[in-house]
Amino acid sequence: MNLDPRYGMCLRSDSPSGARRRPGRGGRWWAAFALMSLWMPVWAAPALPAVTATPVAGGGTEYSLSIQVLLLMTALTLLPAALLSMTAFTRIVIVLGLLRQALGTGQTPTNQVLIGLSLFLTFFVMSPVIERVYTDAVQPYMAGELAFEPALQAAVRPMRAFMLAQTRETDLLTFARIAGDGRYASAEQIPFAVLAAAFLTSELTTAFQIGFLLFIPFVIIDMVVASVLMSMGMMMLSPMLISLPFKLMLFVLVDGWSLVTGMLAASFRASGA
Rank of each mutant, 00 (worst) to 15 (best):
D171T: 06
F199V: 02
E149Y: 08
F148Q: 05
V194P: 00
M159H: 03
G144N: 08
L164V: 08
T170E: 15
G182M: 08
T201W: 09
Y184V: 06
T205F: 10
R157T: 07
T201Y: 10
A197L: 15
F199S: 02
P150V: 13
V194A: 00
D181W: 01
E188H: 12
D181I: 02
L173V: 08
P158K: 04
A155Q: 06
E188P: 07
T206Y: 06
R168G: 08
F199I: 05
A197T: 15
A154C: 03
I190D: 01
A193I: 12
E149K: 06
R183A: 11
A196Y: 04
Q166S: 07
L195C: 02
R157C: 04
S202W: 00
T205V: 10
A161Q: 09
A198G: 02
P158N: 07
Y184C: 07
T170Q: 15
P140E: 06
T201K: 14
D181S: 11
A196E: 12
A147I: 09
Q139F: 05
E149T: 11
L173G: 04
M159I: 05
T205Y: 10
P158M: 03
L173T: 10
E169P: 00
S202A: 03
A187T: 14
Q166P: 01
A187S: 14
L146T: 08
F199L: 03
R183N: 10
L173A: 14
F192S: 11
Y184D: 05
Q189A: 15
P191W: 04
A197W: 04
F199K: 01
L152W: 09
A161K: 04
I178Y: 12
I190Q: 00
G180L: 09
A198D: 02
L204A: 11
L172D: 01
G182W: 05
A176M: 03
P150M: 12
A176F: 02
E145F: 04
M163E: 01
Q153I: 10
L173K: 11
R157Q: 13
F175W: 14
R183E: 13
Q139V: 15
E188T: 13
S186N: 14
Q139K: 14
Q189V: 07
F199R: 00
Y141V: 08
